[in-house]
Structures are given as structure tokens and as C-alpha cells.
Amino acid sequence: KCPLCELMFPPNYDQSKFEEHVESHW
């Protein structure tokens, strides 16, 4: 789950994509 927007991600979600998403909040 994204700590900034509460959006849920699947357990096998690509880590780099997840980090990209988190950085999109900044």
C-alpha cells in the first residue's frame, strides 16, 4: 500500500514501479 495515498498495490507489484509511484507524490 502506498503510504501517501492509501492506494493498494498487489503483493507482486514491481518494486521500481512502486517507488516511482511514491516519488510522484513529491
Results as ranks from 00 to 15, higher is better:
16 S>W: 02
23 E>V: 03
2 C>Q: 01
4 L>D: 15
12 N>K: 13
5 C>F: 00
21 H>L: 00
20 E>P: 05
15 Q>W: 03
10 P>W: 00
12 N>R: 09
22 V>S: 05
16 S>I: 06
16 S>L: 09
6 E>F: 07
20 E>R: 10
15 Q>H: 07
22 V>E: 07
14 D>K: 07
4 L>Y: 15
18 F>N: 09
23 E>F: 04
14 D>L: 09
21 H>C: 00
18 F>Y: 08
21 H>N: 01
11 P>W: 00
3 P>C: 12
13 Y>C: 10
11 P>S: 14
26 W>T: 15
11 P>T: 14
22 V>W: 04
4 L>G: 14
17 K>W: 06
2 C>F: 02
2 C>A: 01
17 K>Y: 12
12 N>W: 01
23 E>W: 03
17 K>D: 07
9 F>L: 02
4 L>W: 11
13 Y>S: 10
5 C>D: 00
6 E>Q: 09
7 L>N: 01
19 E>V: 07
20 E>M: 11
12 N>A: 08
3 P>R: 04
22 V>P: 02
6 E>V: 02
6 E>C: 14
14 D>Y: 05
21 H>Y: 00
16 S>K: 14
2 C>T: 04
1 K>L: 10
20 E>H: 11
2 C>M: 02
8 M>Q: 06
17 K>P: 01
23 E>Y: 03
6 E>W: 06
1 K>V: 12
16 S>T: 10
20 E>C: 04
6 E>G: 09
21 H>S: 00
5 C>Q: 00
22 V>Y: 05
26 W>K: 15
13 Y>M: 08
3 P>A: 13
11 P>K: 03
15 Q>V: 10
12 N>Q: 08
10 P>D: 09
24 S>W: 06
2 C>I: 01
9 F>M: 14
8 M>V: 14
7 L>W: 08
9 F>I: 08
19 E>Q: 11
9 F>Y: 10
12 N>S: 08
13 Y>F: 12
22 V>I: 06
18 F>P: 06
13 Y>T: 14
12 N>Y: 03
3 P>S: 13
7 L>G: 08
6 E>L: 05
3 P>Q: 13
17 K>Q: 11
17 K>F: 08
5 C>V: 00
4 L>E: 15
15 Q>I: 13
26 W>L: 12
13 Y>L: 08
25 H>A: 02
7 L>Y: 06
23 E>L: 05
17 K>V: 05
13 Y>N: 12
2 C>W: 01
22 V>A: 12
16 S>D: 07
8 M>A: 14
10 P>A: 02
8 M>D: 15
1 K>T: 10
15 Q>L: 12
19 E>K: 11
1 K>P: 02
24 S>R: 11
16 S>N: 13
3 P>G: 11
13 Y>K: 15
14 D>T: 11
24 S>H: 13
10 P>I: 09
6 E>T: 05
9 F>S: 06
7 L>C: 06
5 C>N: 03
6 E>R: 06
4 L>C: 07
26 W>P: 15
5 C>L: 02
18 F>W: 02
15 Q>T: 08
20 E>V: 09
12 N>C: 02
9 F>G: 04
10 P>V: 02
25 H>K: 00
13 Y>R: 05
12 N>M: 03
3 P>V: 09
23 E>M: 03
7 L>R: 14
24 S>Y: 06
25 H>C: 10
9 F>W: 04
26 W>R: 15
21 H>V: 01
23 E>R: 14
6 E>I: 01
4 L>S: 15
18 F>V: 09
10 P>F: 05
7 L>V: 14
24 S>N: 14
25 H>E: 04
5 C>R: 01
16 S>A: 06
21 H>Q: 00
11 P>C: 03
10 P>G: 04
26 W>Y: 08
